[in-house]
């Protein structure tokens, strides 16, 4: 169980490494060297804001997938105890709540990254939550082959959308 949960946490944290590599997030460099200063003014200093916005989007997408995965797969466990229309209603409620969380998060994230990169957030968040909930409540654990396969899928997806995001560079003149 610890191995599966640890794997899902590492999978989720890899998003930060990925976005730092791609250039969406920047925690180290001076904004003055990265952005074009306006005449008579300093650079716009949006680096921190970008990090904050992207992090908000990631957490919102993770929470929305948590709601949906919890309701969807939770109803499977109780499919014999409750009537089917109540279970459907619970899943519907989960889906609607998910959409109310995902839509603003997707729009906010799309200001800084492309759709492929947002898809990677969805894949990683959904898998992390699914593996964690499955390990805690259903006692379903990943073996090493499945972990390797899932890692390959995610790394391949990240490599596919690994083009650096365009940033304004301070001109040398």
């Amino acid at each position: 169980m610890i191995l599966t949960i640890g794997f899902s946490i590492v999978l989720f944290l890899s998003l930060w490494a990925y976005f730092m590599f791609v250039g969406v997030m920047n925690f180290a460099q001076n904004p003055d060297n990265l952005e074009t200063p306006l005449p008579g003014r300093p650079a716009r200093r949006t680096i921190g804001r970008i990090n904050s916005d992207v992090e908000k989007s990631i957490w919102a997408i993770l929470s929305s997938h948590a709601v949906f995965v919890f309701t969807l797969y939770g109803t499977l466990e109780y499919s014999t105890l409750l009537p089917s229309f109540i279970l459907t209603l619970i899943v519907l409620l989960g889906g609607v709540v998910m959409m109310f969380m995902v839509t603003p998060a997707n729009r906010r994230a799309h200001a800084y990254m492309n759709i492929g990169q947002i898809t990677i957030i969805h894949m990683v968040s959904s898998l992390s939550i699914f593996l964690t909930i499955g390990a805690i409540f259903n006692e379903k654990y990943l073996n090493y082959q499945e972990m390797g396969a899932v890692s390959l899928i995610i790394v391949g997806a990240m490599m596919t959308y690994s083009r650096l995001v365009h940033r304004y560079k301070k001109s040398k003149k």
């Binding site: 390797g148 890692s151 390959l152 391949g156 997806a157 596919t160 959308y161």
Partner: peptide, 8 residues
């Protein structure tokens, strides 16, 4: 990237 995903 897509090849690695397909392998996965």
């Amino acid at each position: 990237g897509p090849m690695i995903t397909c392998a996965g």
